[in-house]
Design a binder for these strands. Structure first.
Lengths: 178, 178
DNA sequence: CTCACTATGTATAATTT
DNA sequence: TAAATTATACATAGTGA
């Protein structure tokens, strides 16, 4: 019943780890959502866990689709056409429209964010793994390490006679918007 | 002194919002880091705020660079060369090597995550903003809305005689690893 | 596994310096 | 404006159905 002080280390017990992951995922996504709303910040995240088929992407694609669908199916939307002018600019219905459009802009902004993230990390990856002769030792160590692992895997495979299979790759699962 | 129940809405006061952003950013990044360590999950995030020059990227590029630097400068690393075999595979020094290599793998994994995120959102963006005639109304509304905003901005600019300036674009700032 | 509950550590809004 | 403080709401580890 008591929540012991959490030790910041990998949770070895798989069941326990899975539980913790589920709860904390919810927590992080909720807080990210709150940060986004409260502070007017575009916030995106990706979680890549072994517990789920694909990466968890936030903000969720489904959430954004719902936003669009809501906008498209907004009652009286057709009636709004043709009655837009300065007098109706601050009309409630039009303000709602604005909110929805801001959400639409968010989609584009998040895409842009992801691109930035990708470019930054890609550039970083190139710097450390491809560039100069400074990393010869690193490359050598990697190869040796992987070779050792390969040997171990081969040995295990021979003994257990389980055929090697391509990893199952499911579609990405998106988080439900909190 | 008391923390009032938080109302989930955009904080209008800029000073207040800035404060909240700083604190909550720390919190979210910390929790993301914890989730990553506790549950063995690759977690990446991007924050795009008006409070900082560029996007905040997590895990931090600097943090990863430090990992690499540590690895490269590891004492006795040169001595390890040539003494790797099955007997020394579980040697302490080599286990450390493995940990560092896992971190290196994390770099690549995060890059991959970002790419997935980008592709998913890119695809989604195209679906909703470019594709079919279903969205004619949406496009029409956007144009009208933007035109109205433009008029307002023009009016404000004329009255205040403040010249329009290109937004300053700084380099990306990376979060410090907690 | 999933939900529900509860005790408790943590994050953070409000306030002061 | 930023840092330190404090009181409180919230997240979540542990537990049971």
């Amino acid at each position: 019943m008591a929540r012991k002080r959490v030790k910041l280390a990998f949770i070895v017990n798989q069941t326990q780890r899975r539980k913790s992951y589920k709860k904390r995922k919810m927590g992080v996504l909720k807080m990210l959502n709150e940060l986004s709303i409260l502070c007017g910040v575009e916030a995106g995240a990706v979680l890549y866990s072994s517990f789920e088929q694909g990466p968890v992407v936030c903000p969720s694609v489904e959430g954004m689709q719902q936003t669009i669908a809501t906008f498209k199916n907004m009652p009286d939307f057709a009636q709004t056409r043709g009655m837009m002018n300065h007098d109706t600019f601050l009309d409630d219905r039009f303000l709602k429209l604005g909110t929805q459009l801001l959400n639409l802009k968010t989609v584009n902004r998040v895409t842009e964010m992801a691109l930035v993230m990708f470019q930054i990390l890609q550039g970083h990856q190139l710097n450390i793994s491809l560039s100069s002769e400074d990393l010869n030792d690193l490359g050598w160590a990697i190869n040796l390490y992987l070779a050792e692992i390969e040997k171990k895997v081969e040995a295990i495979m021979k003994n257990s006679s389980i055929p090697a299979s391509a990893p199952t790759q499911g579609g990405p699962s998106t988080s439900t918007n909190p």
